[in-house]
Design a binder for these strands. Sequence first.
DNA 1: ACTCCAATGTTATTGTGTAACATGGCTTGC
DNA 2: GCAAGCCATGTTACACAATAACATTGGAGT
Lengths: 161, 161
Amino acid sequence: MALLGFERHDHDSCVSDTLSAAEAHCAEAGLRLTPVRRRVLEILLERHRALGAYDILETLAAEGLGSQPPVAYRALDFLVKAGFVHKIERLNAYVACAHPGDSHAPAFMICRSCDSVAEAQASLAAGALGDAAKAAGFRIERTVVEAEGLCPGCLKRGDAT
Amino acid sequence: MALLGFERHDHDSCVSDTLSAAEAHCAEAGLRLTPVRRRVLEILLERHRALGAYDILETLAAEGLGSQPPVAYRALDFLVKAGFVHKIERLNAYVACAHPGDSHAPAFMICRSCDSVAEAQASLAAGALGDAAKAAGFRIERTVVEAEGLCPGCLKRGDAT
DNA sequence: ACTCCAATGTTATTGTGTAACATGGCTTGC
DNA sequence: GCAAGCCATGTTACACAATAACATTGGAGT
Protein backbone atom coordinates (compact mmCIF):
# COMPACT_ATOMS: atom_id res chain seq x y z
CA MET A 1 0.00 0.00 0.00
CA ALA A 2 1.74 3.08 -1.17
CA LEU A 3 0.99 6.73 -1.38
CA LEU A 4 -0.78 8.73 -3.98
CA GLY A 5 -0.46 12.32 -3.26
CA PHE A 6 0.24 11.57 0.33
CA GLU A 7 -2.61 9.16 0.90
CA ARG A 8 -3.25 5.45 0.81
CA HIS A 9 -5.09 3.94 -2.08
CA ASP A 10 -5.71 0.73 -3.95
CA HIS A 11 -2.41 0.47 -5.67
CA ASP A 12 -2.97 -2.64 -7.77
CA SER A 13 -5.95 -1.19 -9.51
CA CYS A 14 -4.28 2.19 -9.89
CA VAL A 15 -1.48 0.48 -11.79
CA SER A 16 -3.64 -1.66 -14.03
CA ASP A 17 -6.21 1.05 -14.64
CA THR A 18 -3.60 3.53 -15.71
CA LEU A 19 -1.88 1.01 -17.95
CA SER A 20 -5.17 0.17 -19.64
CA ALA A 21 -5.95 3.81 -20.12
CA ALA A 22 -2.51 4.38 -21.63
CA GLU A 23 -2.99 1.47 -24.01
CA ALA A 24 -6.36 2.78 -25.08
CA HIS A 25 -5.03 6.26 -25.59
CA CYS A 26 -2.12 5.03 -27.68
CA ALA A 27 -4.34 2.85 -29.84
CA GLU A 28 -6.58 5.80 -30.48
CA ALA A 29 -3.79 8.24 -31.19
CA GLY A 30 -1.75 5.88 -33.33
CA LEU A 31 1.11 5.72 -30.82
CA ARG A 32 3.00 2.52 -30.18
CA LEU A 33 3.16 1.43 -26.58
CA THR A 34 5.92 -1.10 -27.13
CA PRO A 35 7.05 -3.62 -24.48
CA VAL A 36 9.88 -1.45 -23.21
CA ARG A 37 7.74 1.67 -23.05
CA ARG A 38 4.91 -0.19 -21.41
CA ARG A 39 7.23 -1.76 -18.87
CA VAL A 40 8.85 1.57 -18.00
CA LEU A 41 5.45 3.08 -17.34
CA GLU A 42 4.53 0.04 -15.27
CA ILE A 43 7.72 0.30 -13.22
CA LEU A 44 6.98 3.94 -12.46
CA LEU A 45 3.42 3.11 -11.50
CA GLU A 46 4.44 0.16 -9.32
CA ARG A 47 7.15 1.95 -7.43
CA HIS A 48 4.96 4.97 -7.26
CA ARG A 49 7.73 7.44 -6.69
CA ALA A 50 10.20 9.53 -8.62
CA LEU A 51 12.88 7.34 -10.16
CA GLY A 52 16.10 8.25 -11.90
CA ALA A 53 16.61 6.99 -15.43
CA TYR A 54 19.34 4.68 -14.18
CA ASP A 55 17.10 3.19 -11.50
CA ILE A 56 14.65 2.28 -14.20
CA LEU A 57 17.40 1.01 -16.45
CA GLU A 58 18.57 -1.30 -13.67
CA THR A 59 15.17 -2.95 -13.53
CA LEU A 60 14.96 -3.19 -17.30
CA ALA A 61 18.38 -4.76 -17.46
CA ALA A 62 17.45 -7.36 -14.85
CA GLU A 63 14.55 -8.33 -17.07
CA GLY A 64 16.52 -8.44 -20.30
CA LEU A 65 14.71 -5.45 -21.76
CA GLY A 66 17.75 -3.31 -22.42
CA SER A 67 20.88 -2.42 -20.60
CA GLN A 68 22.15 0.82 -22.09
CA PRO A 69 21.09 4.36 -21.13
CA PRO A 70 19.46 5.25 -24.45
CA VAL A 71 16.94 2.45 -23.97
CA ALA A 72 15.63 4.04 -20.81
CA TYR A 73 15.88 7.60 -22.07
CA ARG A 74 14.05 6.85 -25.28
CA ALA A 75 11.20 5.16 -23.47
CA LEU A 76 11.01 8.05 -21.02
CA ASP A 77 11.01 10.62 -23.82
CA PHE A 78 8.10 8.85 -25.42
CA LEU A 79 6.13 8.61 -22.19
CA VAL A 80 6.79 12.24 -21.29
CA LYS A 81 5.72 13.46 -24.72
CA ALA A 82 2.60 11.32 -24.53
CA GLY A 83 1.82 12.83 -21.13
CA PHE A 84 1.97 9.59 -19.14
CA VAL A 85 5.08 10.58 -17.23
CA HIS A 86 6.45 13.84 -15.88
CA LYS A 87 10.02 14.82 -15.25
CA ILE A 88 10.83 16.32 -11.88
CA GLU A 89 13.54 18.82 -12.76
CA ARG A 90 14.60 19.37 -9.21
CA LEU A 91 15.41 15.67 -8.78
CA ASN A 92 16.41 14.75 -12.32
CA ALA A 93 13.86 12.01 -11.93
CA TYR A 94 10.66 10.76 -13.51
CA VAL A 95 7.25 10.01 -12.10
CA ALA A 96 4.05 8.54 -13.54
CA CYS A 97 1.33 11.09 -14.10
CA ALA A 98 -1.28 11.03 -11.37
CA HIS A 99 -4.00 12.67 -13.46
CA PRO A 100 -3.76 11.07 -16.85
CA GLY A 101 -6.11 12.59 -19.35
CA ASP A 102 -6.58 15.86 -17.54
CA SER A 103 -5.44 18.99 -19.23
CA HIS A 104 -1.96 19.47 -18.02
CA ALA A 105 -0.09 22.11 -16.09
CA PRO A 106 1.25 19.85 -13.40
CA ALA A 107 2.68 21.06 -10.11
CA PHE A 108 4.58 18.92 -7.66
CA MET A 109 5.17 18.76 -3.94
CA ILE A 110 8.46 17.06 -3.15
CA CYS A 111 9.32 15.89 0.35
CA ARG A 112 12.98 16.59 1.06
CA SER A 113 13.04 13.97 3.77
CA CYS A 114 11.47 10.90 2.16
CA ASP A 115 11.53 12.00 -1.50
CA SER A 116 7.86 11.26 -2.01
CA VAL A 117 6.19 13.31 -4.71
CA ALA A 118 2.58 14.42 -5.00
CA GLU A 119 1.09 15.91 -8.11
CA ALA A 120 -1.38 18.77 -8.12
CA GLN A 121 -2.81 20.99 -10.79
CA ALA A 122 -1.59 24.55 -11.02
CA SER A 123 -2.61 26.68 -13.92
CA LEU A 124 0.36 28.86 -13.33
CA ALA A 125 0.04 30.80 -16.51
CA ALA A 126 -3.26 32.18 -15.28
CA GLY A 127 -1.77 33.71 -12.14
CA ALA A 128 0.81 36.28 -11.23
CA LEU A 129 3.47 34.85 -13.50
CA GLY A 130 1.08 34.90 -16.40
CA ASP A 131 0.55 38.61 -15.85
CA ALA A 132 4.28 39.21 -15.67
CA ALA A 133 4.80 37.26 -18.86
CA LYS A 134 2.11 39.19 -20.65
CA ALA A 135 3.59 42.47 -19.49
CA ALA A 136 7.02 41.43 -20.68
CA GLY A 137 5.79 40.07 -23.98
CA PHE A 138 6.94 36.57 -23.16
CA ARG A 139 4.99 33.62 -24.55
CA ILE A 140 4.73 30.76 -22.06
CA GLU A 141 4.71 27.31 -23.62
CA ARG A 142 5.42 25.10 -20.65
CA THR A 143 5.77 25.53 -16.92
CA VAL A 144 7.81 23.82 -14.24
CA VAL A 145 6.28 24.18 -10.80
CA GLU A 146 7.86 22.26 -7.96
CA ALA A 147 7.49 22.93 -4.25
CA GLU A 148 10.03 21.43 -1.90
CA GLY A 149 9.28 20.85 1.76
CA LEU A 150 8.02 18.25 4.19
CA CYS A 151 5.17 15.86 3.56
CA PRO A 152 2.52 15.20 6.21
CA GLY A 153 4.07 11.88 7.20
CA CYS A 154 7.55 13.27 7.79
CA LEU A 155 6.13 16.32 9.56
CA LYS A 156 4.18 14.06 11.91
CA ARG A 157 7.19 11.89 12.66
CA GLY A 158 9.25 15.01 13.22
CA ASP A 159 11.77 13.94 10.59
CA ALA A 160 14.27 16.59 9.62
CA THR A 161 12.24 19.32 11.19
CA MET B 1 6.83 42.91 -10.94
CA ALA B 2 10.22 44.18 -12.02
CA LEU B 3 11.91 42.59 -14.97
CA LEU B 4 15.51 42.82 -15.84
CA GLY B 5 15.89 40.06 -18.28
CA PHE B 6 14.46 41.31 -21.52
CA GLU B 7 15.26 44.99 -21.30
CA ARG B 8 18.26 47.20 -21.67
CA HIS B 9 19.84 48.72 -18.64
CA ASP B 10 23.03 50.28 -17.34
CA HIS B 11 25.03 47.15 -17.04
CA ASP B 12 28.24 48.48 -15.51
CA SER B 13 26.48 50.03 -12.60
CA CYS B 14 24.21 47.01 -12.21
CA VAL B 15 27.32 44.86 -11.74
CA SER B 16 29.15 47.11 -9.35
CA ASP B 17 26.06 48.07 -7.38
CA THR B 18 25.09 44.47 -6.83
CA LEU B 19 28.61 43.49 -5.84
CA SER B 20 28.76 46.33 -3.33
CA ALA B 21 25.41 45.35 -1.93
CA ALA B 22 26.56 41.75 -1.60
CA GLU B 23 29.69 42.83 0.21
CA ALA B 24 27.70 44.96 2.59
CA HIS B 25 25.23 42.20 3.24
CA CYS B 26 27.96 39.67 3.94
CA ALA B 27 29.77 42.01 6.29
CA GLU B 28 26.58 42.56 8.20
CA ALA B 29 25.60 38.92 8.33
CA GLY B 30 29.05 37.60 9.17
CA LEU B 31 29.42 35.80 5.85
CA ARG B 32 32.71 35.66 4.04
CA LEU B 33 32.64 36.85 0.46
CA THR B 34 36.02 35.40 -0.42
CA PRO B 35 37.82 36.11 -3.70
CA VAL B 36 36.50 33.02 -5.48
CA ARG B 37 32.95 33.62 -4.31
CA ARG B 38 33.10 37.26 -5.22
CA ARG B 39 34.53 36.52 -8.62
CA VAL B 40 31.88 33.91 -9.37
CA LEU B 41 29.16 36.37 -8.54
CA GLU B 42 30.88 38.98 -10.67
CA ILE B 43 31.13 36.58 -13.61
CA LEU B 44 27.42 35.85 -13.40
CA LEU B 45 26.62 39.54 -13.22
CA GLU B 46 28.90 40.46 -16.10
CA ARG B 47 27.66 37.80 -18.45
CA HIS B 48 24.14 38.47 -17.33
CA ARG B 49 22.77 35.11 -18.33
CA ALA B 50 22.40 31.59 -17.01
CA LEU B 51 25.76 29.83 -16.91
CA GLY B 52 26.62 26.22 -16.24
CA ALA B 53 29.00 25.46 -13.40
CA TYR B 54 31.59 24.34 -15.90
CA ASP B 55 31.32 27.57 -17.88
CA ILE B 56 32.12 29.45 -14.72
CA LEU B 57 34.88 27.05 -13.84
CA GLU B 58 36.49 27.67 -17.19
CA THR B 59 36.72 31.38 -16.48
CA LEU B 60 38.00 30.78 -12.97
CA ALA B 61 40.65 28.42 -14.29
CA ALA B 62 41.81 30.96 -16.85
CA GLU B 63 42.34 33.38 -13.99
CA GLY B 64 44.11 30.93 -11.72
CA LEU B 65 41.30 30.89 -9.21
CA GLY B 66 40.68 27.17 -9.23
CA SER B 67 40.43 24.47 -11.82
CA GLN B 68 38.45 21.63 -10.28
CA PRO B 69 34.65 21.30 -10.18
CA PRO B 70 34.28 21.53 -6.39
CA VAL B 71 35.73 25.03 -6.48
CA ALA B 72 32.91 26.27 -8.66
CA TYR B 73 30.21 24.23 -6.95
CA ARG B 74 31.22 25.37 -3.48
CA ALA B 75 31.18 28.99 -4.48
CA LEU B 76 27.80 28.55 -6.15
CA ASP B 77 26.38 26.78 -3.10
CA PHE B 78 27.43 29.67 -0.96
CA LEU B 79 25.98 32.27 -3.29
CA VAL B 80 22.72 30.38 -3.67
CA LYS B 81 22.33 29.96 0.08
CA ALA B 82 23.08 33.62 0.57
CA GLY B 83 20.43 34.49 -2.01
CA PHE B 84 22.75 36.22 -4.48
CA VAL B 85 22.37 33.55 -7.12
CA HIS B 86 19.55 31.27 -8.22
CA LYS B 87 19.76 27.90 -9.84
CA ILE B 88 17.65 27.33 -12.94
CA GLU B 89 16.72 23.68 -12.56
CA ARG B 90 15.46 23.35 -16.05
CA LEU B 91 18.84 24.38 -17.48
CA ASN B 92 21.15 23.07 -14.79
CA ALA B 93 22.53 26.55 -14.75
CA TYR B 94 23.00 29.49 -12.45
CA VAL B 95 22.04 33.12 -12.71
CA ALA B 96 22.68 36.18 -10.55
CA CYS B 97 19.64 37.33 -8.62
CA ALA B 98 17.92 40.28 -10.24
CA HIS B 99 16.22 41.47 -7.06
CA PRO B 100 18.79 41.16 -4.34
CA GLY B 101 17.41 41.98 -0.97
CA ASP B 102 13.78 41.41 -1.85
CA SER B 103 11.98 38.66 -0.05
CA HIS B 104 12.37 35.72 -2.28
CA ALA B 105 10.08 33.41 -4.16
CA PRO B 106 11.68 33.83 -7.54
CA ALA B 107 10.06 32.80 -10.82
CA PHE B 108 11.81 32.62 -14.15
CA MET B 109 10.96 32.98 -17.79
CA ILE B 110 13.35 31.04 -19.97
CA CYS B 111 13.54 31.56 -23.72
CA ARG B 112 13.99 28.23 -25.44
CA SER B 113 15.41 29.93 -28.50
CA CYS B 114 18.08 32.26 -27.10
CA ASP B 115 18.33 30.91 -23.54
CA SER B 116 17.86 34.32 -22.00
CA VAL B 117 16.36 34.28 -18.53
CA ALA B 118 14.21 36.89 -16.82
CA GLU B 119 13.40 36.86 -13.16
CA ALA B 120 10.04 37.82 -11.72
CA GLN B 121 8.46 37.52 -8.33
CA ALA B 122 5.79 34.89 -7.84
CA SER B 123 4.52 34.20 -4.38
CA LEU B 124 3.46 30.77 -5.47
CA ALA B 125 2.71 29.52 -2.00
CA ALA B 126 -0.06 32.07 -1.78
CA GLY B 127 -1.91 30.77 -4.81
CA ALA B 128 -3.50 27.54 -5.96
CA LEU B 129 -0.54 25.37 -5.06
CA GLY B 130 -0.50 26.84 -1.59
CA ASP B 131 -4.09 25.78 -1.13
CA ALA B 132 -3.37 22.29 -2.38
CA ALA B 133 -0.41 22.03 -0.03
CA LYS B 134 -2.44 23.20 2.91
CA ALA B 135 -5.16 20.69 2.11
CA ALA B 136 -2.61 17.90 1.85
CA GLY B 137 -0.76 18.91 5.00
CA PHE B 138 2.43 19.61 3.08
CA ARG B 139 4.78 22.30 4.35
CA ILE B 140 6.35 24.29 1.52
CA GLU B 141 9.87 25.49 2.21
CA ARG B 142 11.05 26.43 -1.24
CA THR B 143 9.54 26.71 -4.69
CA VAL B 144 10.84 26.22 -8.18
CA VAL B 145 8.84 28.15 -10.75
CA GLU B 146 10.12 28.23 -14.28
CA ALA B 147 8.21 29.08 -17.41
CA GLU B 148 9.66 28.04 -20.74
CA GLY B 149 8.72 29.74 -23.97
CA LEU B 150 9.75 32.53 -26.30
CA CYS B 151 11.07 35.91 -25.24
CA PRO B 152 9.85 39.12 -26.90
CA GLY B 153 12.98 39.43 -29.00
CA CYS B 154 12.80 35.94 -30.45
CA LEU B 155 9.05 36.26 -30.99
CA LYS B 156 9.57 39.47 -32.93
CA ARG B 157 12.30 37.97 -35.07
CA GLY B 158 10.12 34.94 -35.66
CA ASP B 159 12.81 32.61 -34.34
CA ALA B 160 11.68 29.05 -33.78
CA THR B 161 8.06 29.98 -33.94
C1' DA C 1 9.93 -9.55 -52.34
C1' DC C 2 11.10 -4.83 -51.53
C1' DT C 3 11.18 -0.44 -49.37
C1' DC C 4 10.61 2.52 -45.80
C1' DC C 5 10.37 3.87 -41.30
C1' DA C 6 10.10 3.49 -36.52
C1' DA C 7 12.10 1.19 -32.69
C1' DT C 8 15.85 -1.00 -30.59
C1' DG C 9 20.82 -2.40 -29.73
C1' DT C 10 25.43 -0.81 -28.91
C1' DT C 11 29.58 1.92 -28.29
C1' DA C 12 31.42 5.88 -26.83
C1' DT C 13 31.44 10.34 -25.02
C1' DT C 14 29.92 14.66 -22.88
C1' DG C 15 27.91 17.13 -19.09
C1' DT C 16 26.60 17.66 -14.15
C1' DG C 17 27.59 16.97 -9.48
C1' DT C 18 29.81 14.89 -5.09
C1' DA C 19 32.62 12.06 -1.80
C1' DA C 20 36.57 12.02 0.56
C1' DC C 21 40.70 13.50 2.14
C1' DA C 22 44.77 16.85 2.44
C1' DT C 23 46.30 21.58 3.14
C1' DG C 24 46.38 26.29 4.61
C1' DG C 25 45.25 30.22 7.16
C1' DC C 26 42.66 32.86 10.45
C1' DT C 27 40.81 33.59 15.17
C1' DT C 28 40.02 32.68 19.63
C1' DG C 29 40.95 31.27 24.11
C1' DC C 30 44.59 30.32 27.01
C1' DG D 1 52.89 33.58 21.65
C1' DC D 2 50.75 29.43 20.60
C1' DA D 3 47.80 25.56 20.37
C1' DA D 4 43.04 24.13 18.96
C1' DG D 5 39.51 24.36 15.95
C1' DC D 6 37.14 25.94 12.13
C1' DC D 7 36.36 27.39 7.69
C1' DA D 8 37.76 27.71 3.06
C1' DT D 9 40.36 25.81 -0.52
C1' DG D 10 43.12 22.26 -3.36
C1' DT D 11 42.98 17.77 -5.47
C1' DT D 12 41.84 13.12 -6.83
C1' DA D 13 38.67 10.20 -8.07
C1' DC D 14 34.26 8.86 -9.05
C1' DA D 15 28.97 8.65 -9.58
C1' DC D 16 25.04 10.02 -11.88
C1' DA D 17 22.55 12.22 -16.04
C1' DA D 18 22.11 12.61 -20.84
C1' DT D 19 23.17 12.33 -25.75
C1' DA D 20 25.70 11.46 -30.36
C1' DA D 21 26.31 8.40 -33.78
C1' DC D 22 25.86 4.35 -36.10
C1' DA D 23 24.27 -0.65 -36.78
C1' DT D 24 20.40 -3.76 -36.74
C1' DT D 25 15.80 -5.44 -36.59
C1' DG D 26 11.08 -5.98 -37.78
C1' DG D 27 6.63 -4.70 -39.18
C1' DA D 28 3.38 -1.92 -42.70
C1' DG D 29 2.38 -0.89 -47.05
C1' DT D 30 3.14 -1.37 -52.00
